[in-house]
């Protein structure tokens, strides 16, 4: 797969000298759903704003389909639809007029059929003559999505599409996003929720303090998640690991009467049986054993804290 977006050494320093993006490098593949996962203030919105032209780039380069977003902005913006984090809408505008406006702003020929289908897909068709002010928050978010898709973009940025959206609507949103992916749209979404990234993303980029800490396929992260730890409580504190147990990479502790063994639960061979019998034959007395699974949440927290 080729990269549709290339972000190179992107820096964003705001007027108050705050560095929101610190030499960010990120490649986004054509047709994928990538989730930008990070806590409040991590720089997710800043990253999107720099790609889309909302924010001026301090230094570095961003290319969309090979075009520079600053120099060839007409070409790059044509390819991009943006759903902002805030529900920024003209309150007295009608839904239909608002969506039509967006399409025209992008210089696209009028196509009422396309817009009608779009609104139907987003369950907005029966609300097309309502003024935006009269819609609920979730519906307003859908109007923003409709506006972003009105010019048939190849890339869609969704800044926290499910913030403040109830479970039902969230599931709706996920299926809308998956459908868009099937239509070939590349999707970049931001979220605080790990389960959301897990549900819909192909890849996950973890961002904190303006730095991308990790980008990986979701499946890889999940196999990291399926990492389990076996804790073996012993009668005495071990000073060293007996030679026969070397190959298990056990962790010993200076002040605690325990050993730790990491294994993956996904494989057939966990090595637990062998380990336990070797421990027994080496004469170490066991008191208790306990297993624990690290969650994606923990992996995430660990990554963020290690930063």
């Amino acid at each position: 797969m080729s990269n549709i977006i290339e972000i190179q050494n992107l820096m964003k320093v705001y007027d108050n000298n705050y560095t929101a993006l610190d030499k960010v490098n990120l490649s986004i593949k054509k047709g994928e759903i990538i989730a930008l996962l990070g806590p409040n203030g991590a720089g997710k919105t800043s990253l999107i704003s720099n790609v889309c032209g909302i924010s001026s780039i301090t230094s570095g380069n961003v290319f969309v389909e090979g075009y520079n977003v600053e120099k060839e902005y007409r070409k790059t913006r044509d390819l991009i639809g943006l759903v902002p984090q805030e529900l920024s809408l003209e309150p007295f505008e009608k839904v239909w007029a608002s969506v039509k406006f967006s399409r025209q702003l992008f210089g696209k020929k009028r196509n009422d059929n396309y817009l009608e289908n779009l609104l139907k897909k987003l369950s907005l068709w029966d609300k097309k003559n309502q003024i935006i002010k009269s819609l609920s928050g979730g519906m307003k978010r859908r109007v923003l999505i409709a506006k972003a898709l009105s010019h048939e973009p190849k890339i869609l940025f969704l800044d926290e599409p499910t913030a403040g959206v109830d479970v039902e609507l969230r599931k709706d949103m996920w299926s809308i996003i998956k459908e868009l992916k099937n239509d070939g749209v590349t999707i970049i979404l931001t979220t605080h929720y790990i389960e959301e990234a897990e549900m819909i993303a192909d890849r996950i980029a973890v961002i904190n303090n303006g730095k991308i800490l990790l980008v990986d396929k979701k499946d890889n992260l999940i196999s990291k998640m399926s990492k389990k730890t076996l804790t073996i409580y012993t009668k005495q504190i071990l000073k060293s690991i007996p030679h026969s147990l070397k190959k298990f990479n056990l962790r010993i502790f200076k002040n605690e009467k325990k050993l730790e063994y990491d294994y993956t639960a996904s494989g057939n061979k966990t090595g637990i049986t062998t380990l336990l019998s070797k421990i027994k034959s080496s004469g170490i007395e066991l008191i208790d054993v306990q297993t624990r699974q690290s969650t994606l949440e923990e992996i995430f927290v660990e990554i963020v804290n290690n930063d």
């Binding site: 007409r74 991009i80 702003l105 210089g107």
Partner: peptide
């Protein structure tokens, strides 16, 4: 209203 995002992100 914050709707300038649309002007800024459009090819204009």
């Amino acid at each position: 209203l914050g709707t300038t995002y649309e002007l800024l992100s459009a090819p204009i």
